[in-house]
Amino acid sequence: MAWFKRTDKGIKTSTEDKKDAPDGLWFKTPQGNIIHTRELKNNSYVCPDDDFHVKIGSKEYFEILFDNNKFTELDANMKSGDPLKFVDTKPYSSRVEASIKKSELNDAVRTAYGKMNGLDIVVACMDFGFIGGSMGSVVGEKIARAIDHSLKNKIPFLMISKSGGARMMEAGFSLMQMAKTSAKLALLDKAGIPYISLLTDPTTGGVTASYAMLGDFNIAEPEALIGFAGPRVIRETIGKDLPKGFQSSEFVLEHGFLDFIIDRRQLKNRLTTLLNLLNN
């Protein structure tokens, strides 16, 4: 005789009462540390055990930087055109559409102004989730207009880069966004308004070769990949494996192209101190 007897048959719990463990509640860092996502959020998306900086987007950076997450977004509805009617394995227009749906963003950069510890600041922040954070006409134009806002109101400009480089599907147009953003930064420079460029993981290609490297202050998050050519291309060119740490933030700092590396948890306060030092 069985020592256990089921009296009621089947599972009686109604669907609403079933307990589900939601996806994405826990985050595992590359070193294997596991952290609750709520704790991660309270820690500026940095793992407290190994200081791993999780890749985040404009939503999270705005939340970290702007006081009480209050800001005014600029050109929020700007979307890509398809000037070349570009088709590779699929049409560019459907890539853009799919990306808008998936990421709930309109393109790879968001721009906004607001207060950071009471100081006025304009922030442009790239989103890697939108076609690899690639720079096309929208990215170029939104950054250009954000700089215009800085110029007009004499407010410091912060650019947060995170991009694989230029957007191939806009070919020549995409290339000229490097020129456009650099032109605006030349005007900002001439007007004596501070420009801080924060490079995050990854920042490569045409973005590195234009606005990301043009800051009065070039700063980076720890262990970010920063370079002009991608590691694969370089490996193929020189036919050798790349040294460990090549093109990391620490490597770029060592070679003289960054002012300092900043832990994301200190970002807001350090930027405030820097701007105050310029003001005093």
Partner: peptide, 16 residues
């Protein structure tokens, strides 16, 4: 796209 080019700041040189 070389090793030394990256060390000496290819991106920065073009941007400037």
């Amino acid at each position: 796209p070389g090793l030394e080019a990256e060390e000496r700041g290819q991106g920065e040189a073009i941007a400037r």
